[in-house]
Design a binder for these strands. Structure first.
Lengths: 121, 121
DNA sequence: CAACAATGCATAACATTCTTATGTATGTTT
DNA sequence: AAACATACATAAGAATGTTATGCATTGTTG
């Protein structure tokens, strides 16, 4: 099940665009999904964006740790066979923060789309 | 002449959102306006976004210098009385690059809006 | 079954790109 | 004359990514 824009063209965004949006993406996915683990998040984002947004592990794991130490996420460690898996879910304050960040980013996207479309001449 | 979203609420975006979009914003304004100087760009962005996006000088001037040294912008220095003013305009390769960056950012915005709206449940 | 790819976590060195602070100078308004 | 706006510039520091590396387990394929 896919939902892609320009799925024929594989255009991976230049990385600097992702900056500043990663936390919000993570919070959004967790607000929709109740609980997810790190690797799952990277795959979900790839899937939902048709490979356009690829979250690197070097970015994701520190971000998850930061959100956790801010009290926005709680963690449950589980073992799948011998392999560790860490499930993250939103805390109460995480749910609050999640809504705020999503609203802010959505608003920002509208403003940016307006800025990009406008002819100021 | 204004065009604001939520003009009653002054919500300045948390700064990290701007990251990675500044070059594109500058290129976009220059593709619409033929030539502009630095201070003018900061004011135009403020005006167009209803104060939501405020470009700091510490970010803008280094960006203009970088775009210039990449050959994307050309400069003309003028004096208004005794005060210096540096007008920037797109070079030929700058016009090309401008279109590319605008397309990429517009596409990214669509993808992000999709990501934010979706219910993955 | 051996090799390779995928799953799953983690951290460190480095790069990029902002913010904040500071500096210099001229022009305008109260 | 003080304050604010215009107009440029740069440097120290913070934030947040990439790239590289490491380790271990599980699934797939020739």
């Amino acid at each position: 099940m896919f939902a892609l824009y320009n799925s024929n063209i594989t255009m991976i965004y230049s990385s600097e665009l992702i900056k500043g949006t990663l936390k919000t993406i993570v919070l959004k996915l967790l607000s929709d999904n109740n609980r997810m683990y790190g690797y799952e998040i990277t795959q979900k984002v790839k899937e939902l964006t048709g490979d356009k947004i690829q979250i690197t592990e070097g970015a994701l794991y520190p971000t998850l740790h930061a959100l956790e130490s801010d009290g926005l996420l709680s963690v449950e460690t589980e073992f799948i066979g011998k392999r560790v898996r860490k499930y993250y879910s939103l805390s109460t304050s995480g749910k609050q923060k999640s809504q705020e960040k999503i609203s802010e980013l959505a608003d920002f996207m509208n403003t940016m789309k307006y800025l990009l479309d406008i002819k100021t001449a």
